[in-house]
Design a protein around this nucleic acid. Sequence first.
RNA 1: GGGGGUGUAGCUCAAUUGGUUAGAGCAGUGGAUUGUCGAUCCACAGGUUGCGGGUUCGAGCCCCGUCACCCUCGCCA
Length: 592
Amino acid sequence: MWTLKRTHTCGELRELDEGKTVVLNGWVASRRDFGNLMFIDVRDRYGKTQVLFSPDREAKLLAMADKLRGEYVVAVKGVVRRRQPSAVNPNLDTGMIEVDATELEVLNEAKTPPFEIRDLVEVSEEVRLQYRYLDLRRPEMQRHIITRHRVTHAIRESMNRQGFLDIETPYLVKFTPGGARNFLVPSRLHPGKFYALAESPQIFKQLFMVAGYDRYFQIARCFRDEDLRADRQIEFTQLDLEMSFVQPDDVMEVVEQCVADVWKDVRGVAVGRPFPRLTYAEAMRSYGTDKPDLRYGMELWDVTREVAASPFRVFSEAARAGVVRGLTGPGCAGFSRKEMDALETFAKGWGAKGLVQFKVEEGGKLAGGAAKFLGEGDAAALLDASKARPGDMMFLVADEEERAATVLGALRGHLAEKLGLTGKEEDHFCWVVDFPMFEKVEEGLGARHHPFTSPKDDDLEILEKEPLKVKAKAYDLVLNGVELGGGSIRIHRGDVQHRIFRLLGLSEEYLKDRFGFLLQAFEYGAPPHGGIALGIDRMAMLALGLENIRDVLTFPKTQRAVDLMTGAPGTVTEKQLRELHLDITSAEELSS
RNA sequence: GGGGGUGUAGCUCAAUUGGUUAGAGCAGUGGAUUGUCGAUCCACAGGUUGCGGGUUCGAGCCCCGUCACCCUCGCCA
């Protein structure tokens, strides 16, 4: 029970409020004790306000204030005073005023926290996660969580404005193979049977299209039992959407509008539209990745033809079966032996046999270990292709095409980081389109996106003949080298779907068992449709300029998928196991 | 499953070539203090050096094992 209910938040009082009697509720952020005079900063999520306890009031009040400690929860009644010019704190929004306390109520005491509740305190993430509720009290984390709210709010407003319906789908679903590993939930009512936690609403949203809800969206949690990373959690949130009677352009248009709305609301910037589009082939050729970072240049170049007859056998031999490609490191000619070795080690770590490095000297002369092996026209060809100038460095990889692209793509990112090219504030969105439909897997073909992705119309005729050349109506949204999400136009015709299934080597029986309901639904009038899913955690992370998804999640899990605060996952009782008809067979697990 | 990094006081870190009683800042506690704002000054308290084993006259430091956290490859969005 408390009597002093707040009239204002700790971030809102200004000079104009001078003379008002106010009540603040919040946490004691700091205490500056001058004996007969004391200052308390009271904090809530809106800000901090300085409260003055002066000896002009009754002695009891000051004595009470003397007992205050950090993170005590307090209610303070007082009069807003304008500060003397010399006492103004320009670093605080409320720094022009202070509250001259007349009453104090301690709503709750607090133990000394394991770390200070402030920004700019370096605390190990392990401790932060263990006391996440305290970490979340820090202004920096509150800014993250509030920004995340603004992202989701802006998304909902934008999608609503664009005529989309927010509809939910089940999380407890039937296991469907392919894609990510599922979490399984044992069924109590059906011994030996399991639900799966939805890895995405994919199938349900397609059924919405069959049902006629032609513009659907949802901010949905997804569950994938895969290894965690700086930008990946086992449960994460997607903006999922699906539309009927559309082509890829229509989906991309909607997404661009939504993202632009979010960026305008959250970052206050107008993003340029339409976003640039690259084909998958272009992205791989120029950037060595299907998620290019367009904040800087350093595009890859190819000299396979030019060096095919080079006396340098590393080049000429690679040119026969593979490619010779490179990138230009601006101003890198000054790299030390050590730095160059480190780059070669980096390249080898990505599977390169080696990394050929040439310094470009004044007059366009190439220097470096392998320079002496180059033939007459080689240097000129390299200079021409690389656009390298004196002071630059060329990095070349001679290998099979995919390997060369991957290595150089990784090297490009690594160099950009090293050269400080990635720190820019600008955001560079782009679309990567025309992905291959299939990829080679151990036993034949696999779906690159998922098996309901539509091939491009023109490629239908070569579907069976040259499946690896077939392009999909798929598109990925990329921001600063991070994949924000991807989608596709789906197959809505049964005949095409069956051709794809056949190519993927899926038997009719198997399909009937796993996707029977979907295939059946598609027999009752499925409209052409397509959609996309975007990672909202990543979006919030990038909107905040962060590099770790955990910093925009309230209770993230560690790399080993543990919640350090609750201790999840945990053991359960024998009774629970019995009810679920489960038997733990491993002795190790039983003892834990 | 593989590669790399880290682990010392509540927090962030230091500790020479293996050498005496493991230090500092912040936080904490007590005292002083009427204009601070990450207040200041004085004092005090605070340690199973992640854990287990080994080598050694002697281990925070070397070796083996193990655990936790982070980055990453595979995997996955």
